[in-house]
Amino acid sequence: MTINEIQDELIEEFSLFGDWMEKYENIIQMGKELPLINAQYKTDDNIIKGCQSRVWLHADYKEGRIFFTADSDAVITKGLVSMVIRVLSGHAPAEIMNAELYFVDKVGLREHLSMTRSNGLLSMIKQMKMYAMAMHSKQNANGTV
C-alpha cells in the first residue's frame, strides 16, 4: 500500500467511531501495537524533545526502505506515534520525504499537531523526514536511485 492508501484506511477506520471515547480508546489500543524500539536504542540521543511526553525514535534502512520503531512514556502519544509509523514506515526515502500527512486532520486529531500540545509528534514527523532526506541523498550519491 502507498502512504496515501494507508492514510485513507486510517481515516476509514476512524469514521466508524461514534464518539471521542471510542476514538481515544482506539488510539490507546494502537499504542499497544506500536513496533517497539529495541531497548538499546532507547537512549537520550534518540529522544525527540517534546515538552511533556517523551518520544524515542529509531530508524532502520533495509533494501531501499526505511523502518521506524519508537516508544513514548504517554499512552496517547504512543498511539499517535503508532499511527504515524503505520503510515510512514516501510516506504522508500523519497516517498517519506514528500508525504503529506492529511490523516491527522481528517481523523480529528489536529489539536495534537498544534504547538501547544508539545507532545513531540510534530518534531517526530520532522525527524522522520530528515532521516528520509539523509537516506535519499545517500542513495543518490551511491547511484542506486
Partner: peptide, 21 residues
Amino acid sequence: IHAYDVGVILDQLGIAVRTGH
C-alpha cells in the same frame, strides 16, 4: 499514567487543567 494523557482526556470532557512541569 502520564499527566499528559490525563490532560487530553479531561480536555475531551471540557475540563481545562494544566499538565506538565
